[in-house]
Design a protein around this nucleic acid. Structure first.
Length: 152
DNA sequence: GCCAACGTTGGC
DNA sequence: GCCAACGTTGGC
């Protein structure tokens, strides 16, 4: 199993919103970064663990636990001319962008990014790398166990 | 709202 | 295929 940290702006989609949704699921659409797309398309598997992270907000940090609910499929928003994520260069026969569905499992206490940074065990956590801007980053098995076992 | 870091774009 | 300009991210 792989594990991931996935960033969402709580103004757009908070952990509570996903927990309130049918089947506790939401499509992770709108990713327009090739590296993040490749993670979803090539490496994610159903059942992978997800740290649900709130970003660009008053209290950025881990806010919940989730899991990958589907394999990657073409992101429908890329074909929707009304969507802010519309991509005129993408076609249904050769879709450029993919998404997965994420199922929220539970809300956790808010673990602030400052607390993550303070733990030597998490010194190599991808999302904490200087200048990191990826919204989807891998979490190692060791990091996953540490976070789930000690921090949540 | 600032700003550093980074990815993408497009002219050449 | 280089690289400057631009837009975006995201913590502070």
């Amino acid at each position: 199993m792989h594990a991931w940290l996935m960033k969402s702006e709580p103004d757009e989609c908070a952990i509570d919103d996903v927990l309130a949704a049918p089947k506790h699921r939401t499509p992770w659409s709108g990713v327009r970064n090739y590296q993040a797309r490749n993670f979803m398309r090539d490496t994610m598997r159903v059942g992978d663990g997800v740290l649900f992270y709130h970003s660009s907000c008053a209290e950025p940090g881990i806010a919940g636990l989730a899991e990958i609910a589907t394999a990657a499929y073409p992101d429908p928003t890329q074909f929707d001319g009304q969507s802010p994520y519309y991509d005129p260069k993408s076609t249904p026969s050769a879709p450029r962008w993919f998404c997965v569905d994420v199922r929220a499992l539970r809300k956790t206490r808010l673990v602030p990014v400052s607390e993550l940074r303070a733990h030597p065990s998490l010194a190599k956590l991808w999302t904490l790398r200087p200048g990191n801007r990826l919204s989807i980053t891998p979490v190692s098995a060791t990091e996953w166990k540490f976070i789930c076992g000690k921090l949540l």
